[in-house]
Design a protein around this nucleic acid. Sequence first.
DNA 1: CTACTCACATACGCCTCGTATGCCAATTGA
DNA 2: TCAATTGGCATACGAGGCGTATGTGAGTAG
Lengths: 197, 197
Amino acid sequence: MHRPRKEMIAETRAKLIAAARQAFGTVGYAEASMDDFTASAGLTRGALYHHFGDKKGLLQAVIAEIDGEMAVRVNEVASKASTRWQHFVDECTTYIEMALEPEIQRIMFRDGPAVLGDPAQWPNASACTASMTDHLTALQGEGVVVADLDPETAARLINGASSQAAQRIANSKDPEATSKKAIAAFKQLLEGLRKKP
Amino acid sequence: MHRPRKEMIAETRAKLIAAARQAFGTVGYAEASMDDFTASAGLTRGALYHHFGDKKGLLQAVIAEIDGEMAVRVNEVASKASTRWQHFVDECTTYIEMALEPEIQRIMFRDGPAVLGDPAQWPNASACTASMTDHLTALQGEGVVVADLDPETAARLINGASSQAAQRIANSKDPEATSKKAIAAFKQLLEGLRKKP
DNA sequence: CTACTCACATACGCCTCGTATGCCAATTGA
DNA sequence: TCAATTGGCATACGAGGCGTATGTGAGTAG
């Protein structure tokens, strides 16, 4: 075969990321034993340190993977809207829906920021906020959104609100009702960005 | 003396909380060694386990203390506003300003949620959001804020946005400029809650 | 075919946490 | 005032978890 070596390496990396993602997403970063989840991938910590440097490095890789998937999903859903403003709103609500998934919530919104710091400083992530920033900029150009607004800043505030909305829904005893209230409140906040006639 | 025992106990608790607060606020919860910061208070882990059960229990106590201080500060500042809406807005911006302090940011917005979970579920904290919820309810009664809105949900979304705003400012290279942009964007979002004439 | 590279495992020591146990001072009741 | 007792806090011990140094064997190049 041509490059069995490179393939084995990629496979090892993928297995480690998958095992770590599973562990981080369920028991959490701090409680995830490197010995345990590397073993569950049929490997040892030796492989982990070789490829990712340390536990944080592996978390970064996991986050990069999830972030990529989220960006794809957001784009899929939001591209069906009729107006650009609706497109933007759909993007935000999709973001909330994704944040409802325990794995995403735990890794992207809780352990990630705690271990790696402000997500805005992450090197490879936040493709979603980038997309939201683009839309806000375009909406400003079209005069839909107030001109006196920094798109990237606004995108990040919305991101924070989304995360809280998702947590509120996820921890609710009546997720259906809470979801309605949270999304309504969220859309109401977004209305503040629109230019008034 | 009358109650030297009770006083010593209270002092011990206070010293532990102060030492932990210092450690958590600087190096962070995970990196703070219980042996180290109890020693810096002239005590050992024995005292810690006796009073707080475990490391998480101590973090809860630290959070309760900080939360109380934040509530006091918010009330002090916001009570000077002329209208209730302005009062509410001041409350929010004060919240952002407090979230700029590294200790508060680290303990209340990063390590706290990561270790103890959703702040909304904390038993003794979030006096600030409670206050914001009250104001929103009152503003609804006065017809200033749209009726179709759950105050507590809205308060928590705002809370999330505030936290992001603060992080953005704190990590900025030009905090002055970023602060202006972040607070402007934030107020713009709040406008969405007001009833239109 | 030989020597080198490198992916990964193994082995070791340090640190941290939690618990079980012990000690001494303060309180209580007479 | 003097036992008896409580309980605040320290000490001692064991169990992991992490990071590093080192080893090994398979793939690769010249």
